[in-house]
Simulated assay, not measured.
Amino acid sequence: MGLTPNREVFITCAVTGAGDTTGRSDKVPVTPQQIAESSVAAARAGAAIAHIHVRDPDSGAPSRDPALYREVVERIRDSGVDMVLNLTAGMGGDLVLGSTEAPLPADPQGTDMIGATERLVHIAELRPEICTLDCGTMNFGEGDYVMTNTPAMLKAMARQIRDLGVRPEIEVFDTGHLLLAKWLKAQGVIDDPVMIQLCMGIPWGAPDDLGTFKAVVDNVPEDWTFSAFSIGRNQLPYAALAMLAGGNIRVGLEDNIWLDKGVLASNEDLVARAATAVQSLGGRLLSPAEVRQKLKLEKRW
């Protein structure tokens, strides 16, 4: 990883995620109105892309209800604030084993395993410019949860995403996931320009130390566009590191709820801090229109 900074940077704001963060911060948006308003505020602070999950408005639990996605998208579009929409397609690959002594049947409380087409229902209905494709299977956290994305499932999803005219953002959580992304490209189910997100520091994926980050970045093809982030306290340092490594930036409450020690962040706070880092390092923020041109995205609204 040579020091070849990216001077023209886009920021993605991961607005709410699916993690158990709502009980730890009242700034994490839950309802469609809150998610849309937080996305708009992030865009006004400098984010070109809003990465969106939805939650059950009553419980705050993660949801994949297409009606909730539709309400968020319509509220953002009605705001008149331009941003590139990136909807998650990661839901529906959740496997929670029964126990260490009786792994099967799976725990019905946490397991949510559905087919490729069903995982993309909201993408087919709303046609965002971008949707995510979690490129691999891995243990996730300390319990019996496995994020499950087999090569066959990913190939089927990638083909459907391509046919919908949506750009996949390939989520790379570990070094082998990058190899899987390259295989999908070689299979002809992902079109140029390829866009990937390096997701660092998530147990038990790639750690966010500099050596591992360098190893991953050094193996990203030169003609691919990448962003990178880390979770928790290293999210904001990674904003600068991603730019210096030649990439783009992701921040947001999906990955980190803190602005400073003991100070809870809003999405716009995190975006503003990342924007300041870009400008302090001699970079320029790309607008949504410039991101569409760079990634050959079709504006839907």
Rank of each mutant, 00 (worst) to 15 (best):
G60P: 03
G19E: 12
R44A: 07
S63E: 08
R70K: 15
R24P: 00
A41V: 08
K27S: 08
P62A: 05
P29I: 10
Y69I: 04
R55L: 07
E37T: 08
T31C: 00
A67M: 00
R24A: 12
L85F: 04
A50L: 07
P29Y: 02
A50M: 07
R77F: 07
Q33P: 03
P57F: 01
E71Y: 00
A48T: 01
I49V: 15
T22A: 13
A67R: 11
T16H: 00
A36T: 10
A48V: 04
R44T: 11
Q34T: 01
A67Y: 03
R75A: 15
A42W: 12
D78Q: 15
M83C: 14
L68H: 03
G60R: 04
T16D: 07
T31E: 05
A47T: 10
D82N: 11
G19T: 13
R55P: 04
E37W: 05
V84G: 09
I76N: 08
A18L: 00
E74T: 13
G17Y: 04
A67H: 09
D78F: 08
E37P: 08
D58P: 00
S63L: 05
T16L: 07
D82T: 13
A41M: 13
Q33K: 14
H53M: 09
L68W: 01
R55V: 06
G17S: 02
A45L: 11
E71D: 15
A18D: 14
A43N: 12
T22I: 15
L85S: 06
D26A: 14
D26K: 14
G17C: 00
